[in-house]
Amino acid sequence: MNSILGLFNYWIVIFLMMTGFYVVIAQGNLVKKLVGLGLFQASVFLLYISMGKVEGGHAPIIDAFNRVYSNPLPHVLILTAIVVGVATLAVGLALIVRIQDAYGSVEEDDIQAHDNEADSD
């Protein structure tokens, strides 16, 4: 019973990760795919943060009372990863905007059909 509760956080992470993965491979709309990537990314963040948690620990800001602190290292990694994530997301969105300009659509099928036509010409 204890181990089920202890591992439950991993299962949530995996569930979220697979949700994002499904969107990326199954949906045709490019904006939707980026949202899927975002879900995937957030699940990885959650995995790291839950690894850093120590039972009975406190936020890693030293004060006079607490003696047990959670692990600050994953926090640092994820903090920077979130901001880098939004920057790379912006690059992805910018690419989508350019694809919209070039193809007139952000649906994968349309873009492929367009490419096939261009190849056969």
Partner: peptide, 21 residues
């Protein structure tokens, strides 16, 4: 997610996620 981070003691991360996400 930010709320969840808060719960897991990662205050700085929760902060960032709320502002960015």
């Amino acid at each position: 997610t930010a709320g969840l981070f808060m719960n897991l003691d990662a205050v700085d991360v929760a902060f960032t996620e709320a502002a960015v996400g």
